[in-house]
């Protein structure tokens, strides 16, 4: 029999993980909503930023906050580069080709990281305390990451609702065709969207790097679950993705304690498949 305190601990850890997963899913979903393209390599961009944070902090001795900022900066640059170099030429290709082009990027990043940095696991070692709350042991790093993830999401929300370009982005995700009719420049909106999506990846990278070690297959570990969350929430639907992130992270965390880590993921993916059939438009979509 499993001690209920372990379950409670797993549930809290699930919520904390959910915050960072939600951030990842929102970044990917923003890009999908506007460009109608799934960046299969999204979490691999996160991984590159994590490597930067690791090298700046652990090798060059930068303070963690400066390293994290640099990670966010790299995220922005990568987001824009992916859009300009890969997405722009194939904007009008069939969706399968767009999916595969970013899939090729995934292979490229993953193997290049293996080539440059080998498959060693590298972690940013900070001496952060473990906090005891009512018998549960919670990592301070995770609490900080959760708080900052929520802050970043609030920032994204304000950006999308309070700024002119943010409003333009939301308008585009509602109707792509109408934008050109209104005389707006699509390429500019696309680039800003990709930059913001990249920034979200960078923030997620900074937050993940204080909890997990980075290795070339990091993208393969977190990528699938991120897509599942986006689809479960409804591709392009921000609120849905936010809720779905917590559902999935709870299943993974609690299922991992009750059975095994793999079974936690199996249940999460199986739920995703079943939910696709029950609610293809995402958990918040109205049934037709």
């Amino acid at each position: 029999m499993i001690d209920p305190i372990f379950l409670a601990e797993a549930a809290v850890n699930g919520i904390l993980l959910g915050g960072v997963l939600a951030l990842l899913a929102l970044g990917l979903n923003l890009i999908f909503g506007v460009l109608d393209i799934v960046w299969i390599a999204y979490v691999d961009l996160v991984m590159l930023s994590m490597y930067l944070v690791y090298f700046l902090v652990m090798v060059y001795g930068w303070p963690i906050w400066l390293g994290a900022l640099a990670g966010v900066g790299l995220g922005v640059v990568l987001g824009v580069l992916v859009h300009v170099l890969i997405i722009t030429p194939i904007l009008d290709s069939p969706p399968i080709n767009q999916l595969l082009a970013t899939g090729g990027l995934l292979f490229f990043i993953q193997s290049f990281a293996t080539f440059l940095w080998t498959t060693d696991h590298r972690s940013v070692r900070l001496t952060l305390p473990i906090i005891e709350v009512g018998g549960m042991f919670l990592s301070f790093a995770r609490l900080v990451a959760f708080g900052l993830a929520i802050l970043a999401m609030v920032g994204l929300y304000l950006f999308l609702t309070r700024t002119y370009i943010g409003t333009a982005i939301r308008a585009v995700s509602q109707d792509r065709g109408a934008m050109a009719l209104m005389g707006a420049d699509p390429q500019r909106v696309y680039i800003v969207t990709s930059a913001v999506g990249g920034a979200m990846a960078g923030v997620a990278a900074a937050l993940l790097s204080i909890q997990y070690s980075v290795h070339p297959h990091f993208g393969a570990a977190f990528g699938p679950i991120t897509f599942m969350i986006c689809v479960l929430g409804g591709l392009g639907n921000m609120v849905g993705a936010f809720i779905a992130a917590f559902i999935m992270s709870e299943i993974i965390s609690v299922g991992g304690v009750l059975w095994s880590t793999e079974m936690g993921y199996v249940i999460a993916f199986a739920l995703f498949i079943v939910m696709m059939f029950a609610r293809p438009g995402g958990i918040l979509a109205r049934r037709q």
Partner: peptide, 20 residues
């Protein structure tokens, strides 16, 4: 190790863009 797949991945992206 990994160089082969790196070039492979890069070629794939290039092919999908220019020879769909």
């Amino acid at each position: 190790i990994g160089m082969a797949e790196t070039i492979y991945g890069l070629l794939l992206v290039i092919f999908i863009i220019f020879l769909p």
